[in-house]
Amino acid sequence: MKRTQEFLTALDNGMLRYFREIADVMVDRFGISRAEAVARINDAYEGSEIDPYPDLMCHEEPEYWAYGLYFQARNGVVPRGEDVADLAQWEKSPAPPKTSHVWTLAE
C-alpha cells in the first residue's frame, strides 16, 4: 500500500486502478477536468483506510462512486448511470475550493 502524488490515501495497485477508473468516469461523463475529479475523490477519501483490491467498495462499479461524488443526493438518492435520461435535473455537488490541498493535480 502506498500513497501517490495523485491520491491522498494509501492504495495498493488494484485500488489505485479502481480510483483512477472513478476519476475517468467523472471526466468522461460529466466533462470535468481530471484535476477536479481527483480533488473530489481526495476530499471524500483522504486518510480513509482502504483495503487491498478488491476492497468492499469494489462490490459497486466505479460509476456508482463517481455519480455519488459528483451529484448531490436528493432524498438519499443520487442518479445512477444509464438509468437517468436527463442529468440536468440533478444538482451538482460543489467541487472542493481551489485553495484546498486536495487538488493534487494541476488544471
Rank of each mutant, 00 (worst) to 15 (best):
L16N: 03
L16E: 05
R17K: 10
R17I: 08
R17L: 09
R17W: 06
R17H: 07
R17P: 04
Y18H: 07
Y18D: 02
Y18K: 03
F19C: 03
F19P: 01
F19R: 00
F19D: 01
R20W: 01
R20D: 10
R20I: 01
R20H: 06
R20E: 11
R20P: 01
E21M: 05
E21S: 11
E21P: 01
I22Q: 02
I22G: 01
I22F: 03
I22E: 02
I22T: 02
A23C: 12
A23G: 08
A23M: 04
A23I: 03
A23W: 02
D24A: 10
D24W: 01
D24V: 02
D24F: 02
D24N: 11
D24Q: 09
V25Y: 00
V25P: 00
V25K: 00
V25A: 00
M26P: 02
M26T: 02
M26G: 03
M26L: 05
V27Q: 09
V27P: 07
V27M: 09
D28V: 12
D28N: 15
D28P: 08
D28H: 10
R29F: 07
R29N: 12
R29L: 11
R29P: 03
R29E: 14
R29H: 11
R29Q: 14
F30S: 05
F30E: 06
F30C: 07
F30D: 04
F30L: 06
F30R: 02
F30G: 06
G31Q: 09
I32Y: 05
I32W: 05
I32D: 08
I32S: 06
S33C: 13
S33N: 12
S33H: 07
S33M: 11
S33K: 11
S33G: 13
R34I: 10
R34A: 14
A35F: 04
A35R: 03
A35S: 15
E36Q: 10
E36A: 14
E36H: 05
E36L: 12
E36G: 05
E36N: 12
E36S: 09
A37S: 10
V38I: 10
V38D: 00
V38N: 00
A39T: 00
A39W: 00
R40H: 05
R40T: 03
R40I: 02
R40E: 04
R40P: 02
I41Q: 08
I41K: 08
I41A: 09
N42W: 03
N42H: 09
N42V: 05
N42D: 09
N42Q: 09
N42K: 07
D43G: 13
D43N: 15
D43C: 12
D43T: 08
A44P: 11
A44E: 14
A44Y: 12
Y45L: 07
Y45T: 02
Y45N: 04
Y45H: 11
E46V: 10
E46K: 15
E46H: 14
E46S: 15
G47F: 01
G47S: 05
G47N: 05
G47L: 03
S48P: 09
S48E: 13
S48W: 14
S48I: 07
E49Y: 12
E49A: 13
E49M: 08
I50F: 09
D51L: 13
P52A: 15
P52H: 15
P52W: 12
P52C: 13
P52D: 15
Y53L: 06
Y53F: 15
Y53I: 04
P54D: 08
P54G: 06
P54K: 14
P54Q: 12
P54V: 09
P54A: 11
D55H: 14
D55K: 08
D55E: 09
D55I: 06
D55S: 13
D55T: 07
